[in-house]
Design a protein around this nucleic acid. Structure first.
Lengths: 232, 232
DNA sequence: CACCATTTTGGAGCGCCGCACCAAAGAGTG
DNA sequence: CACTCTTTGGTGCGGCGCTCCAAAATGGTG
């Protein structure tokens, strides 16, 4: 018998799991998912691959952990005022996710991946709880809670994924500049399409250039909340 | 001067672009995105990598082409009856996308990827045109067309992505069997969560097991359409 | 203090991968 | 028949994730 059965866990760790994850997030932010290679990580931390695998497991595990970390931080956001309506709560949570993915564009892919294959993990549960918890106060009947929450989550993740930008090809970071540029180009291309074959796309080419992502995102939330209140 | 300026394109092609894409789709369906390697493709077609790159370019190009092919086919679906309401049109298009991704699960990731980085491509334009073209008849004011279409597209792609299953780990194909099983497990896990910390998730654990994906998807569409009609 | 079980580290090596590149075969043309 | 351009199969390079292991660091114990 050892004197005290369980304790020997923590030794002095020069390299910590947290440190690795933080560095990984930095690298992901800087260069997209393709930039996070185990080799690059070991070089950055001046260590070997063994240490990485010892602390966080495979590259996939590392990406999951990074996702959990970032999403967990984002979901901690609460409305500013004291008397917040359920709508406010949902808007704040949704915007927190929106902004998190805008700041960490690699999240888009990873988030849907994780929600799909790990419904029990803190990410899925956290998002559902945060969004769904407001439905009762919103007047949605209990029997529709899961459908309603799913609708919101699907919309939020869909919108947020599609507003995320391309990963891996932008070596320089020019977040606003080429975003405008890209919209201009897309708008011009849409306008240039055959109005007979593509009347709608042709017609909204102008709106697409002038729209604001965040505002549009909130409009969508408002539409869904409106629809949900008619569900009763 | 040649006798006729443009014509000499088609030589005898033992290997056609179409053939490659079709085979690629088969392989993707069978084993997920990870299963489509250039090496495996060359082996399956008993050719070399040079021929592949000559016909379709890089692996990424091939995935884009495969996506365009499948989505193009899906978008060709029209409502059965003759007198279709705008709502019917949207539902049919949405369900076509839903079913396409259910049949080709690798599409989920690829679709959002393509929409994000190629707003001019046939996939993005096709989806927007198909969905957005109904908004006028639905009574949505012209100034809100782009926002409304975006809301629908965001929701559809979000829902559809999250209903797609995991890629690459299932060697055997057991589409219904382990789906049930997975829901059961997830439901049990949700029910097992602390009701104080996660009241909502705990409460809807039962609904999550019994829900039907397609039905829930249509409920979401109905909610959004309802909300859109209040937008005027 | 010295000893040693255990944790933690760094790195070499394996089996993959995508893809650039190229020499040669094939098909139409004069 | 020769000649040109298309099409093909294959080889090799650089890089990847990951396994495995010898060695170093660590901290409790006699």
């Amino acid at each position: 018998m050892t004197t005290r059965a369980r304790r020997p866990q923590r030794r002095n760790q020069v390299l910590s799991r947290e440190q690795i994850v933080d560095t990984a997030v930095e690298m992901l932010d800087a260069g997209g998912e393709g930039a996070l290679t185990v080799r690059a990580l070991t070089e950055r931390l001046s260590t070997g691959s063994g240490a990485i695998y010892y602390h966080v497991g495979t590259r996939d595990d590392l990406l999951d952990t990074a996702t959990e970390t970032v999403i967990g931080a984002a979901l901690a956001a609460r409305p500013a005022g004291e008397a917040a309506t359920p709508g406010d709560e949902i808007r704040v949570a949704a915007l927190a996710l929106f902004d998190a993915i805008a700041a960490h564009r690699w999240l888009a892919t990873r988030l849907t991946l994780q929600i799909v294959r790990n419904p029990v993990g803190p990410v899925t549960v956290g998002i559902f709880e945060r969004i769904g918890g407001q439905l009762g106060a919103l007047g949605v009947p209990r029997a529709s809670w899961f459908d309603a929450a799913s609708t919101l989550v699907h919309y939020i993740l869909g919108a947020v994924s599609q507003n995320a930008r391309i990963e891996g090809d932008t070596s320089g970071i020019d977040p606003e500049g080429d975003r405008e540029e890209l919209f201009d180009a897309a708008s011009a291309a849409w306008r240039g399409l055959d109005p007979e074959a593509y009347p709608f796309v042709h017609a909204v080419a102008g709106q697409m250039r002038e729209h604001d992502d965040r505002e549009q995102f909130l409009t969508g939330i408002a539409v869904i909340l409106e629809g949900l209140t008619r569900l009763r």
